[in-house]
Simulated scan of single mutants.
Amino acid sequence: MISSSAGAADVRQLVVESLKGRADDIADRWVLLQLERAPMDPANGERDLRYEADTVASALLAGLDTSLPVDQIVNQHRELREAVRELSLRRARAGAPPTATSMSVLALKDVLLEILRETIDDTGRLFSAALLIDRLLDAAGALSFATYVEGREEIIRRQSRQLLEVSTPVVRLWRQVVAVPLIGTLDTARTQVVMENLLQAIQDEDAQVAIIDITGVPTVDTAVAQHLMQTVRAVRLMGADCVISGIRPTIAQTIAQLGIDLVDILTRATLAEALSEAMKITGGSAPVPRAPVVR
């Protein structure tokens, strides 16, 4: 026990002395406490919890034993910052709830306070030490939550990108003819994916004609038309011709009413008519005897 005879010993030094050499004990208690509070959480397997506890506990003690101000230890001590961030990102990828992730970090506070109560027998010093731990672990909880949100947002962005790519395949219809069938709304983000995939396919297939089929696009407004024209211009810059198919009567009427100028763009009512036009442009090249390539 560390008695009150420690006199005017700095509170932080008192905390360091109380926790020094107890990283394994801290990790053990933290793991047990987390398992008690969330025994069925699939994102918190005991092996993962043990790894996280060992990493964070050792980094925490190392950070305390520096000259950094308490309020800056979590964010400025590289080892501790990375340990907390790694824990949060791992939880985010595993799909653990954000509150559970922050509470897991804050549970470490209970463990440290328990150890301090066992080693400090002076009420005043114990209270001061507890305040220090509160400040330190509150900062760790805040960093954990912010990192978790950052990680989840990145996962959502990546999944959205993957869904966009899946929903905008580029199909090799014929020798030197590729097509992209569009279904649903065509917004800026999707236009960018369509353009990138289509231009890459034109380069890879040495295509002379790119068909953009909008049969599955429910409505065409000014924004959609602008997106289409941007894609057409990009295709032309690649040295290929572009045909837009799927111009139904209702869409043709809407385009006319909006005053959208598609006079310089080759359009056809159906994909079959667009393919026929592409054959004329390419000189009626014979089909390649293999299955279409979908990108």
Rank of each mutant, 00 (worst) to 15 (best):
R172L: 11
Q176T: 13
Q176C: 01
Q176P: 00
V177I: 14
V178K: 01
V178Y: 01
V180D: 03
V180Y: 05
V180T: 15
L182W: 03
T185E: 15
L186K: 02
D187F: 05
D187P: 05
D187Y: 12
D187T: 12
D187Q: 10
T188G: 13
A189Q: 12
A189Y: 08
R190A: 09
R190H: 10
T191K: 02
Q192Y: 04
Q192I: 07
Q192M: 05
Q192R: 12
V193M: 07
V193A: 07
V194R: 00
V194S: 02
V194A: 04
N197M: 15
N197K: 15
N197V: 07
L198Y: 06
L198F: 08
L198S: 02
Q200T: 13
Q200M: 10
A201K: 00
Q203L: 01
D204H: 10
E205H: 14
E205A: 12
A207P: 09
Q208F: 05
Q208A: 10
V209D: 02
V209S: 04
A210L: 05
A210I: 01
A210M: 05
I211Q: 04
I211P: 00
D213I: 11
I214W: 06
I214S: 05
I214C: 05
V217A: 06
P218A: 12
P218Q: 13
T219M: 13
T219D: 13
V220E: 05
D221I: 08
T222G: 09
T222A: 13
A223K: 10
A223H: 11
A223G: 09
V224M: 06
A225L: 12
A225K: 09
A225Q: 06
A225E: 02
A225I: 09
L228H: 01
